[in-house]
Design a protein around this nucleic acid. Structure first.
Ligand SMILES: [Zn+2]
Ligand SMILES: [Zn+2]
Ligand SMILES: [Zn+2]
Ligand SMILES: [Zn+2]
Lengths: 127, 127
DNA sequence: ACGAATTGTGTTATGTTATTACATATGCTA
DNA sequence: TAGCATATGTAATAACATAACACAATTCGT
């Protein structure tokens, strides 16, 4: 599943790789204006592709995006902790949680296509 | 912890109680224009209060709001399944999931103040 | 190598969600 | 009844996201 990214996709991916914290689409647009990106659709289209490839994740509670911290080739979904003070995000893959939620879904006749888990709080440095 | 709601808060709560599906702030504004609500802050302020009282929940992945399906006086957080076809939302309280995530947080020096869990997919009627 | 189909780009405009700011009003309580 | 905290009404603006359209680049079968 090797994919060659286009110029805009690579620019957005690189910007997210450099970033220490989640970036909104408009943060990215500002960051990449010098590289020639001028309008929101250019950012959102690149993000759509990167999300599809799971190279990037969207944090729903922030309307922002982070680089993926690992490969997703097998695992189920990811969960994220988000420090509200420093912005630091950690990604993890709680397999047992996936199992429990899958169990709930099965019992309740629900077919989950995607799952969001986000913990907001403080990391130890910001307590 | 008895609280008397104000007029606007009660109007918004009632509108969400009547609704079969999650409502955005602007849906609610349209719904309540005849009752005298005219501008977004009136809705958002009422929602803020209702969220604080946990009479209402925000669905982060929809930017929308639902009435709480039960009391929260003790339980930890809630999780939600959201049918992308019919909009139906179910709220549940997966205690074991809460425990697992709490365990992860403890091990990783993170203090979670709030947790979002949202499953998106299809309910059985929409499969 | 050619043409068609698919995918990506650049741009303008618009739609949707949420907040700031400020003036006024209401209700509680010292 | 004065003072304080909370709520309201309103206009303006900020922040996030998509629609629509013309054109360019890439892929793919022939
Ligand atoms: Zn990831
Ligand atoms: Zn921190
Ligand atoms: Zn609830
Ligand atoms: Zn359904």
């Amino acid at each position: 599943m090797k994919v060659k990214l286009t110029k805009n996709q690579q620019l957005v991916l690189d910007a997210l790789t450099r970033a220490e914290t989640p970036q909104t689409a408009y943060n990215l647009l500002d960051e990449l204006r010098e590289e020639g990106l001028r309008a929101p659709p250019q950012i959102y289209r690149a993000l759509d592709k990167l999300l599809e490839l799971e190279l990037v994740h969207r944090l729903e509670s922030l309307n922002a995006f982070v680089i993926c911290a690992h490969d997703h080739h097998d695992q189920g979904f990811s969960a994220f902790s988000i420090c509200e003070a420093c912005g630091k995000v950690s990604e993890f893959s709680p397999q047992e949680v996936a199992g429990l939620l899958q169990g709930w879904a099965a019992k309740n006749n629900f077919v989950a296509k995607s799952t969001t888990i986000e913990l907001r709080g403080h990391c130890i440095r910001c307590d």
